[in-house]
């Protein structure tokens, strides 16, 4: 993932043309990498990836579901994400995010 353009890197060493300047940086391309944060990507309650069905739903037969909703992801105002199934069980006893202890309020839901 190299985005840099060097000029003169290979010159100048043995021929001694410009001993004061080894090379000039003519162009610089910044390259940013983006990836899922592994910590956020896993539901801290059931330890399954949030994009997969939660541990509870995995145990349930797909064919058996009578129009049952998909297992969705929920994001809190604190930006922590969990399976909606997992989090709704926890907030019944303690309405805080188990990761940061902030009062839990839903920012968005989805897949």
């Amino acid at each position: 993932m190299s985005g840099e353009d060097y000029d003169g890197l290979d010159r100048g060493d043995n021929d001694g043309q410009k001993p004061d300047k080894m090379f000039t940086l003519k162009k610089w391309n910044a390259v940013a990498m983006w990836s899922w944060d592994v910590e956020c990507d896993t539901c801290a309650i059931c330890r399954v990836q949030v994009m997969d069905a939660c541990l509870r739903c995995q145990g349930e037969s797909k064919k058996d579901s009578y129009g049952k909703q998909d297992c969705v992801v929920v994001w809190g105002e604190c930006n922590h994400s969990f399976h909606f199934c997992c989090m709704s069980l926890w907030v019944k006893q303690n309405n805080r995010c188990p990761l940061c202890q902030q009062e839990w309020s839903i920012q968005r839901m989805g897949k």
Partner: peptide, 19 residues
């Protein structure tokens, strides 16, 4: 009751046991 053997077994292992 209509479920395949494998399915009903998976279902009987609780979340606790999986954890």
């Amino acid at each position: 009751n209509g479920l395949t053997t494998a399915e009903s077994i998976v279902r009987r292992i609780s979340v606790r046991d999986k954890l």
